[in-house]
Nucleic acid binder design. Structure first.
Length: 640
RNA sequence: GCUCUGGUAGCUCAGUGGUAGAGCGCUUCCUUGGUAAGGAAGAGGUCGCGGGUUCGAUCCCCGCCCAGAGCUCCA
């Protein structure tokens, strides 16, 4: 090697001298043979690079092994290249789109004449294994734009991408064996380092994510360094599938969606109805405690109302088509706001009246595009736990504090962890920017003062006002929308929402649109998955199932059921078949408690209590104690 | 809406160019069972809908509807 030796620093502060032109691989070898084997890539001055890139003098270098989280992204992106290598072998002329690492794995988009069927995916997977066995090194090369144009002359997708690169950008290509790709990298040293991978699915995806452009075929996969991690991940996917609210909704007889009724229209069966009723009762009581007024408004409105609100212009496509009787035109309501505004406007309001909080479990109708519908989570008719709060500008901070209190109370009851996100003024905001920013600052102040962990979405607010979103994390670690508190300076203008101030002059009110749970459909759908169908006692559609050991004891069992029901508990009796059969049935239906009554229990006036999922671990207890225990668990809304 | 894959009994699914099967569930009978499926019999289907090809279509072809995966969208 020519030139002066270089020095690089390690994370522990140590400085190492290396010959000029040395790479991170040389460094690893210098430190030890174990590290030389384990090193996969390097972080150089904070940038992740290939192991064989030459190091600059004075660089801060951290060698990445499979223990470093950053290495997983490198692995997965390399896996994507291996996938493309395999696809090119199967379909030589395949166009190559993008192939990034994503949260749980990677994908690659291909322009191929035939879509990928499951057996072709398997074939691709086998070819990938061969690419890994061949252990092709990933070779990086810097090229000029002109060279790149020649290299990718036969791939219009790559050429298009290439033309977008600025003239001062360094263009790199990577080769692994036969496959050459326009790519920024970095990559593993060679394809042989790709550990454990699996192709998961194929689906169409628009080129550049633009629905007006051609559709490519996307293959999804995942990859891990260790077999165990891959297995765990696949197992988690299986678990998520088992918790699918659509599957559980059928099995537990909670709801259905039927072709004859219509797409995206949910039928709540008695079981789902019970869950919903309990939540609604709890919600309504809590709202009244928190100073809300309950209002009711019709499901349809004259089109004029949405002309006034401005929604008709912008969102007509997402509304159900108009009902026209030759004179007036009516629409199913896509939101409750205008109705609530009209209630506010129905009389002169004093500053003393504010805040005024109108809450409604308001059923709305939105004509969502068919491909977006999904079980209970994305539907065309849904009931929002909606409210509109009318306040003075000086009440913003105070009201947001109350909202966050309320959110905290509600979400905690369901066992959700949550965090907040604040969205501030976008470019297209209307009205006085200073008012918008001042409001955002006050919201940020509220979040800070509460010590709440929040994320800032700069410019993510609506054009009419900033908002605070609550994001909840469920039992599988997935994040859901868990409420949104949206400030609105526009609608008060459009609807003339005023109040008379202490100065006896008219002032403009400020509106907060807010939901806590979102919609009953989405919330209950989410809860089904959160609990895996095993609802805590207070929410369970059926709380206790009484099982007489034989017909002889049915009378005694019925007496117990009567006592439970008299206390408002949802108890059923099952005297169908053998005891073992019925225990199995109750377990499958995820009933929290079974009360078994046979000779011993009937004579002693007790009941043998078997808890969901606890198998034969059961206790005999007095019937009064049993009733009290359940009542207490319900009253505490225990999560079980 | 777009791409692909599907649609057969209440559910999960097998199957065939000559109008159809299993398991579970349901009904009835026998069994009176002590902790995750006791036994038997029976009912139940316009094979998503509409066209076409064919002597004959659940099966092949076309269109539509619906579902699933993904994309796009989500006031």
């Amino acid at each position: 090697m020519n030139g002066e030796p270089i020095r690089v620093t390690l994370p522990d502060g140590r400085s190492v001298a290396l010959p000029a032109g040395s790479s991170a691989a040389t460094l690893a070898a210098e430190i030890g043979p174990g590290l030389a084997r384990a090193a996969l890539a390097a972080s150089v001055d904070g940038e992740i690079v290939d192991l064989n890139r030459p190091l600059a003098d004075g660089a801060a270098v951290r060698l990445l092994t499979e223990r470093d989280p950053e290495a997983l992204g490198v692995l997965r992106h390399s896996a994507a290249h291996v996938l493309a290598t395999a696809v090119r072998e199967l379909v030589p002329g395949a166009g190559i789109g993008f192939g990034p690492a994503i949260d749980d794995g990677f994908y690659y988009d291909f322009d191929v004449p035939e879509p990928f069927t499951p057996d072709r995916i398997e074939a691709v997977e086998r070819l990938m294994a061969e690419v890994v066995r061949s252990d092709h090194p990933f070779e990086r090369r810097v090229v000029t734009k002109e060279e790149a144009r020649e290299l990718f002359a036969d791939d219009p997708l790559k050429l298009e991408r290439l033309e977008e690169l600025g003239d001062d950008e360094v263009i790199t290509v990577y080769r692994d064996g036969p496959f050459l790709d326009l790519c920024r990298g970095p990559h593993l040293p060679s394809t042989g380092r790709l550990g454990h991978f699996k192709l998961l699915s194929a689906a169409g995806a628009y080129w550049r994510g633009d629905e007006r452009r051609r559709m490519l075929q996307r293959i999804y996969g995942t990859a891990f360094f260790r077999k165990k991690d891959l297995r765990t991940h696949l197992h988690r996917l299986e678990e998520a599938k088992k918790r699918d609210h659509r599957v559980l909704g059928r099995r537990l007889d909670l709801f259905s969606i039927q072709e004859e009724v219509g797409q995206g229209l949910v039928l709540w069966h008695p079981g789902g109805g019970r869950v919903r009723r309990v939540i609604e009762d709890f919600l309504r009581d809590t709202l009244v405690e928190h100073g809300y007024e309950i209002v009711y408004t019709p499901h349809v409105a004259s089109e004029e109302l949405y002309r006034l609100s401005g929604h008709l212009d912008v969102f007509a496509d997402d509304m159900f088509p108009a009902m026209d009787d030759g004179g007036d035109r009516f629409r199913m309501k896509p939101m409750n706001c205008p109705h609530h505004f009209m209630i506010y406007r129905s009389r002169t309001r004093s500053y003393r009246d504010l805040p005024l909080r109108f809450a409604e479990l308001g059923t709305c109708y939105r004509y969502e595009r068919s491909g977006t519908l999904h079980g209970m989570l994305r539907v065309r008719s849904f009931t929002q736990d909606d409210a509109h709060i009318f306040i003075r500008e000086d009440q913003i901070a105070d009201e947001y504090n109350r909202l966050l209190d309320l959110g905290d109370r509600l979400l905690g009851v369901f066992g959700y962890e949550y965090r907040a996100a604040l969205s501030t003024r976008p470019e297209k905001a209307i009205g006085d920017a200073a008012v918008y920013d001042d409001a955002s600052d006050r919201l940020a102040g509220v979040l800070r003062d509460r010590g709440l962990d929040y994320e800032l979405d700069e410019g993510g607010g609506a054009f009419y006002g900033p908002k605070v979103d609550i994001l909840v994390t469920d039992a599988l670690g997935r994040e859901w929308q868990g409420g949104t508190f949206q400030l609105d300076f526009l609608m008060p203008e459009r609807f003339g929402l005023d109040y008379v101030g202490a100065d006896n002059r008219r002032h403009r009110a400020v509106v907060i649109h807010r939901t806590l749970l979102g919609s009953m459909e989405r919330f209950v759908g989410g809860l089904i998955e959160h609990y895996g169908g095993a609802f805590p006692l207070w929410l369970a559609p059926e709380q206790v199932r009484i099982l007489p050991v034989s017909e002889q004891w049915t009378e005694s069992a019925r007496e117990l059921m009567g006592r439970l029901r008299a206390e408002g508990l949802r108890a059923e009796l099952d005297d169908r078949d053998t005891l073992g059969y019925r225990i199995r049935a109750a377990e499958t239906m995820k009933v929290p408690y079974m009360g078994i009554v046979g000779e011993r229990e009937a004579e002693a006036g007790t009941v043998s209590v078997r808890m969901r999922g606890a198998g034969r671990k059961q206790v005999a207890m007095g019937r009064g104690d049993f009733v009290e225990r359940l009542k207490d668990e319900v009253a505490r809304r225990a999560l079980g």
